[in-house]
């Protein structure tokens, strides 16, 4: 590496850093692991060791994936699913923030509602699917409600803890300098809550996806959940697993979006590490 340095041009330096990046354990161990697991799985499928009626393998799922997209079935199903996912999150996020803040800030409100909130947090929400269906129906409203129930809990609980864990010595600073309550929210409480909120949003997005599929399985069957279940029922496992792959991709994408938001809103924290 040192001997290359004098002759290295900009291009070769870039190539070298790319190569060096691959040489990092975090990268090459993951690559090897992927090759072994996915490759092994594929090999099992190619050599006829996987019965396509009960399971499938990567290349078959990929082909099925493109087929479903080409026929428009996947996009239609994804559009249908995304409606309840987006609607659910659009309700759960603001409502969760407001409830978490009210619980964290006002003792009376906390005492009035904390029993239900923590009981619901501990309850597997799947168990609520049937009562919700009975009351709100099995269509859009009922399904969206399931997503809301799945997604809202980590937001409420995290925001509540964020408000509660405000640095008491900084609280005293705001009091000492005669801050009004609204200034205190701006200067201290909201910034303190952001990291908790972002962590809550990450959990909420994951749970919202689960809620979406649960709703599509258990209520009126629709969207990606329906697409998957229909093909699995027809013993076409490759097509049945393709929507699952899409759900994985969406899950990863949502997590990334949350991470980017986190970096944006806590630049002071990132700079501290560098």
């Amino acid at each position: 590496m040192a001997t290359d340095a004098p002759t290295a041009t900009g291009v070769s330096t870039a190539e070298k850093t790319a190569w060096e990046r691959i040489k990092e354990p975090a990268v090459y161990v993951r690559l090897i692991s992927l090759v072994v697991v996915i490759g092994g799985w594929e090999l099992m499928g190619q050599t006829g060791n996987i019965d396509p009626v009960t399971f499938s393998y990567p290349s078959a799922i990929c082909v099925a994936f493109w087929d479903l997209i080409a026929s428009g079935k996947m996009t239609a199903a994804a559009y249908e699913s995304s409606q309840i996912l987006v609607a659910g999150l659009l309700i759960a996020i603001p409502l969760g923030i407001v409830l978490g803040i009210l619980m964290g800030r006002f003792r009376t409100f906390e005492y009035a509602v904390d029993t239900y909130v923590f009981a619901l947090y501990a309850t597997p929400v799947v168990a609520l699917a049937f009562p919700i269906a009975m009351v709100l129906g099995v269509d859009f409203v009922g399904k969206t409600t399931i997503v809301v129930f799945f997604a809202i809990m980590p937001i409420i609980v995290n925001v509540y803890h964020g408000v509660r864990n405000v640095d008491l010595s900084l609280l005293e600073v705001t009091r000492s300098f005669c801050s009004t309550e609204s200034q205190r929210w701006r200067d201290l409480i909201f910034p303190s809550v952001v990291p908790y909120l972002v962590a809550g949003l990450g959990l909420a997005c994951g749970r919202a996806l689960v809620g979406m599929v649960v709703a599509e399985f258990l209520m009126s069957i629709s969207g990606l959940g329906a697409l998957s279940q229909d093909y699995i029922a027809d013993l076409e496992l490759d097509k049945g697993l393709a929507p699952v792959v899409l759900l994985m991709i969406v899950g990863i994408a949502l997590t990334k979006v949350v991470n980017i938001c986190e970096t944006k809103f806590s630049s002071w924290r990132v700079r501290q590490e560098s």
Binding site: S169, L170, V173, R175, S176, F177, D187, W268
Partner: peptide
């Protein structure tokens, strides 16, 4: 109550880490 004519300097600095 606190009044603007007095200002405190705190032992642990009391700066806002995000400001």
């Amino acid at each position: 109550g606190p009044r603007p004519e007095m200002a405190m300097v705190f032992q642990n600095f009391g700066l806002f880490p995000w400001k």
